[in-house]
């Protein structure tokens, strides 16, 4: 029986972090090919190629300089070479590169391969709707695509802090395999077949985190913030029900739901951005560059796409929190509307 071949596409800090788990796990498994190719976008660092540095020192000096990779992770500068023999393709690249990457890979990967997206974010569809990254990969590469979400701070996993993740995978026969590939003693993974729900949860939380940040900026108290988080949670449920029907409530209790939301609302960059937005009164576009250079804050743009989707169905008033957060982002409504919204939101959802 052939061993299962795993590859990683991407070499940023998230990809590098997860590469350590993957490298160790395949090395310890009789079912898996011990060498894992990692596609690295070639750059010259201090006069040397990044792939060479990684393959000789096992350190990704550019993105994770304090972190040693297992020696069975082999950096490759060619994405087709990385992926062509793989049974499991792990995607961990910025969302903007997904389309071009898939185009390069089309027809070059095994037809039986299975993708796993670790990518946060989504694409803006032609009609302004959210297109999930897993859907893009599936459509373009014609292979199934699972998702791994639920851990939004790569450095905490790298530090071996105890962290939970959720894998959304529609095919039960991959459950155990995917769990075995990613897990570690400190990174606990639960697999569910509710894949769309897993992915959309981790997207919508950015909107809620933005709302929670607004509450922090206005110096509202803990109770009010908890009210925003709860209402956001309910609207997430309702949103999934309308746009991705068939999801299960239990999925919201997984790491991709409750834990991700909590971390986002207390620690994440959307929260920080929103807080500064309220306190300084500066436009979001300016604050983004100052506060979180190099990262696109997903809160405002997610709020916009969500709003477009809701308007199309005439449902904006059934999602008062999502709607008011969008309107605050674009300056259509004053901040005070945030609490007003909680006050009058309907409960009978």
């Amino acid at each position: 029986m052939d061993r299962i071949n795993v590859c990683i596409i991407g070499s940023g800090n998230w990809a590098t972090t997860i590469a350590r788990n993957v490298g160790r796990n395949v090395a310890n498994s009789q079912h898996m090919e011990p060498i894992v190719y990692m596609y690295v976008y070639e750059e010259i660092v201090d006069g040397r190629k990044l792939t060479e540095i990684i393959n000789t020192t096992h350190i990704n000096v550019k993105y994770m300089p304090d972190f040693v990779l297992p020696t069975n992770i082999v950096a490759v500068d060619d994405v087709v070479k990385t992926a062509r023999d793989a049974d499991i393709l792990i995607f961990a690249i910025p969302p903007t590169f997904v389309n071009s990457c898939c185009k390069t890979l089309l027809g070059k990967v095994k037809p039986t391969a299975h993708a796993v997206s670790l990518i946060k974010g989504f694409e803006r569809g032609d009609d302004g709707q959210i297109v999930l990254i897993s859907q893009i990969i599936m459509r373009q590469l014609k292979i199934p695509c699972s998702v791994l979400v639920g851990c939004n701070l790569a450095h905490e996993i790298a530090n071996d802090n105890f962290v939970e993740g959720t894998i959304g995978c529609r095919d039960q026969k991959y459950f155990r395999l995917l769990q075995d590939i990613f897990k570690s003693a400190t990174f606990r993974v639960v697999v569910t077949d509710d894949a769309d729900c897993v992915e959309i949860c981790s997207t919508l939380r950015n909107v809620i985190a933005f709302g929670a940040g607004c509450a922090d900026g206005m110096e509202l108290n803990e109770n009010t913030k908890a009210g925003i988080i709860r209402r956001g949670f309910l609207e997430t449920l309702q949103f999934v029900d309308v746009f991705y029907p068939g999801c299960r409530m239990a999925t919201f209790f997984e790491a991709c739901g409750i834990s991700d939301l909590v971390t986002s609302c207390y620690a994440n960059r959307n929260r920080k951005l929103a807080e500064a937005f309220v306190k300084t009164g500066q436009p979001l576009s300016e604050l983004e560059h100052i506060l979180i250079p190099g990262h696109e804050p997903l809160g405002p743009v997610t709020a916009e796409l969500v709003h477009i989707m809701l308007e199309k169905k005439g449902l904006a008033d059934k999602f008062p929190l999502f709607t008011v957060i969008y309107k605050i982002c674009v300056g259509d409504q004053p901040l005070t509307r945030l609490v007003e919204t909680l006050r009058f939101a309907r409960e009978d959802m």
């Binding site: 105890f162 409750i258 909590v262």
Partner: peptide
């Protein structure tokens, strides 16, 4: 934060 979120969950 992630560990705390895990404990809460």
């Amino acid at each position: 934060d992630n560990t705390k979120a895990a404990v809460i969950r």
